[in-house]
Design a protein around this nucleic acid. Structure first.
Lengths: 338, 338
DNA sequence: CTGAAAGCGCTTACAG
DNA sequence: CTGAAAGCGCTTACAG
């Protein structure tokens, strides 16, 4: 395996010139550059990563701490991991994957040994020991999600309150005067991430602002309970003509079946918006308008912020990514009669 | 951040003694070791990864190439990634994650730059460009799964033929004389991985060996088609009393509903075994006997084989992991009447 | 049982 | 525009 000395010899220059030619950190004479390029090609030279890390100030590796617990929703989790890796590669960074069992020890190890230049934290929970650790490590880091105590941290997340508000606005703007939110099972609001709470609060707050009636129900995952919840809310609030669903994929389909089962058609009788899913709602029956949670949006920004910190500390912050609305035809004006 | 010279100075020894004390590669005097341990603790010393990589012969990093495509079954994929990372950590190896878009270029980059000591390949397809690449790279590598051309490669996979044969044996041993396999959609058998084919062939071959009637149907994913397939096979082969299912999670539940819908009870009327799922079948209604695909089994072995290759090339091979049977009560003797 | 020293392959001031 | 050289932080023969 050729090294920089081989390239320098073949090109008839010094190793520093080879180094500068490859890094572009100083101007190189036209013909010198050509001879070096030629030598690099001839020897199939690729700089040694360890030499680079040791001499330089960067390892060009980020640690990604992603639990990969089996109780996380795998498709979304996978999409986020993929988005982080893709975003990191755009900055020429590789990603070292640290999982649940080694969350804290692993982060400590790879940052103390200077194996990584920074840390990206995924699947952040309210009480996340990784948040405290990152704070104490003082290493470049960005969290995707917001822990209970975000002081001193750089966090990026979808603006869930704005997303819920956007859903309300769409319904109200279409003429609906009574809206309902079908949410996750109650356990989700009690522990784990705080975004369901933020979505719910954003929903209720905006509905109040807009002066429309609003109700909120938590829905368990079993089909009978889902049907029950749909009936309950439509029976208890007959005026409801706009529905926002913040739940898992399977729950959506069951809700849609239940709605159809009551003889209601979407959007003629009921307008429906899916809130912040990571899955596709355009192939549902009927396709649903959606305010998606887009992994790339948060991940790209988180990686950018981590990269910025390589130059030095930046202001701690919670950066909220603006929600986007995608129309699939499931929202319309309510029937004149109500 | 303390380095090895700091530790040596505080402990009053040379840096080589510190290095040997930490690596355990040569015996160190009792009190010398104590002084070094003390200094390490006092300075919170952790060896610099880049220095280690450059001076040593190992980076202690494996590349894991896992596509993370959105069309792969995420829960299983995540379980495999997790199992690889966990297995690698047991050998004190970290894992660098390379995804789809960079499969070939990324592997070339990290191996040419000596960033990694070896490669673990996940989600291997029949025509997998990564297989050819790994062959040409000549770097320690282990594939989890078997490509069309496995020549020169080290592969590990579940023994799918043996798994299917085990299912047949269980049914035949219980007294069943006519068995059926409900498999994946036809597209799965035509492209992608080859394990569905291996499972099917193992099923048919063992049934022939045991002298029992066997049929095989491919089942699409939509509920109506699933119900249709169940009816078709039970109508066409009324003697069938033993069923093996090799399909996705949702398909299983729909099949069970369809079976119940026909008034058949499991296992009294029909014995059912789930073939090589990565999901839990013990919470199905009823719980199903299962021959699971256990990510850890293949992943641990693949990592072991990669580690072995650090000492030098080993014999190329396709190592098949023996299947295991888990009884949940869904297999019984057929009714005396047939 | 321990140490002095070479060397791994780069980057980057320093010098011209 | 280019080069000689120091140095990053380790490991490991070599020597005693």
């Amino acid at each position: 395996m050729a090294n920089i000395h081989d390239v320098a010899r073949v090109a008839g220059v010094s190793i520093s010139t080879v180094s500068y030619a490859l890094s572009g950190k100083r101007p190189i004479g036209e013909k010198t550059r050509l001879r070096i390029d030629e030598a690099v090609r001839e020897l199939d030279y690729m700089p040694n990563a360890a030499g680079r890390m040791l001499a330089g100030t960067r390892t060009r590796i980020f640690a990604l701490t992603a639990p990969l617990r089996s109780d996380t929703y795998a498709p979304a989790h996978m999409a986020f991991v993929l988005a982080v890796v893709t975003a990191a590669r755009a900055f020429d960074y590789d990603v070292l994957l640290l999982t649940e069992d080694e969350a804290v020890d692993g982060l400590r190890r790879v940052s103390s040994s200077r194996l990584v230049d920074g840390i990206i934290v995924l699947d952040v929970s309210v009480e996340d020991e990784r948040a405290d650790l990152v704070r104490s490590l003082g290493v470049p880091a960005a969290l995707i999600g917001v822990p209970g105590d975000a002081a001193g941290l750089v966090c990026v997340d979808l603006d869930f309150e704005a997303a819920a508000a956007l859903a309300v606005d769409r319904l109200v703007d279409a003429g609906h005067a009574s809206v309902a939110l079908l949410g996750h099972p109650s356990a989700v609001y009690e522990r784990g991430s705080n975004f369901p709470v933020r979505f719910r609060d954003g929903f209720l707050a905006r509905a109040a602002e807009r002066g429309v009636a609003a109700s909120f129900s938590m829905v368990e995952k079993d089909a009978p309970e889902i049907r029950q919840a749909v009936s309950a809310i439509l029976d208890a609030h007959p005026a409801v003509t706009g529905l926002v669903v913040h739940a898992e994929e399977g729950v959506h389909t069951t809700i849609l079946e239940a709605v159809a089962g009551r003889g209601l058609s979407i959007p003629a009788d009921l307008s429906v918006i899916a809130g912040v899913p990571t899955f596709d709602t355009s192939s549902f029956t009927p396709p649903l308008d959606v305010i998606p949670l887009i992994p790339a949006d948060s991940c790209v920004r988180a990686v950018e912020l981590a990269v910025q910190q390589l130059e030095g500390p930046i202001e701690p912050r919670v950066e909220l990514v603006a929600p986007k609305y995608r129309d699939h035809g499931s929202v319309a004006a309510p029937r004149p009669g109500g």
